[in-house]
């Protein structure tokens, strides 16, 4: 068997912060002593265009540089992207589909045909309420941490402080930490 990493594939629209979320997760995992890799897939770079980002986390150096074809987790930051192709390669037995949506589980299943475990959170609403902008990536990170337990919530909080404090100030840091925490608390997972 080839070496196994935790592989997360992010789907979003350019501008929604999928790339930053993939990177922040990698940075947090590195601080937890893990080997990490994160990279985006670029097409034509324009805001709103569908894009993917990838995070690999391992106990050994991450060697594979190919895109993730068989993810352990698929994170969908924009529910208008949901389709059967979005869950391609995602195992129905052990995989996890995490979606930013206000809709119900049946709707997600209907759009994707995915029969495995699904978690969802109204990340855009939470981001609007807490940050005042519809950038749902920190909420999704909170939800992901709860659903997968890849790193402790505090590791992401620390990362947010490091990344945003100098650049945006205390208010933005606190808003993002609230958004992160609400993602963690409000994510719901359906029965398979």
């Amino acid at each position: 068997m080839p070496v196994k990493y935790l592989e997360i594939r992010w789907h979003g629209r350019a501008g929604q912060g999928a790339k930053s979320a993939a990177q922040m997760l990698a940075e947090s995992a590195l601080e937890q002593g893990k080997f990490v890799q994160a990279f985006p897939e670029y097409g034509a770079e324009r805001t709103g265009a569908p894009m993917k980002a990838f995070t690999r986390i391992g106990d050994q150096p991450v060697l594979v540089r190919a895109v993730i074809e068989n993810p352990d987790v698929v994170v969908v930051i924009d529910d208008t992207l949901l389709s059967p192709t979005i869950v391609e390669g995602l195992d129905e037995k052990n995989g996890l589909l995490l979606v930013n949506t206000v809709r119900d589980f049946d709707w997600i299943r209907g759009r994707t045909g995915y029969k495995g475990k699904i978690c969802k959170v109204a990340a855009t609403d939470i981001a609007l309420q807490e940050i005042g902008r519809g950038v749902p990536n920190t909420v999704m990170l909170g939800a992901l941490v709860k659903a997968v337990g890849v790193v402790p919530l505090e590791a992401i909080e620390k990362r947010i402080e490091k990344m945003f404090l100098g650049k945006f100030g205390k208010e933005i840091v606190e808003a993002n930490k609230r958004a992160l925490k609400r993602g963690y608390e409000e994510v719901e997972c359906g029965e398979v």
Binding site: Q23, A26, Q37, A38, F39, P40, Y42, R65
Partner: peptide, 10 residues
Amino acid sequence: GFIISHGVEP
């Protein structure tokens, strides 16, 4: 390009 330039690793 991208693989190294835009990829994040330790």
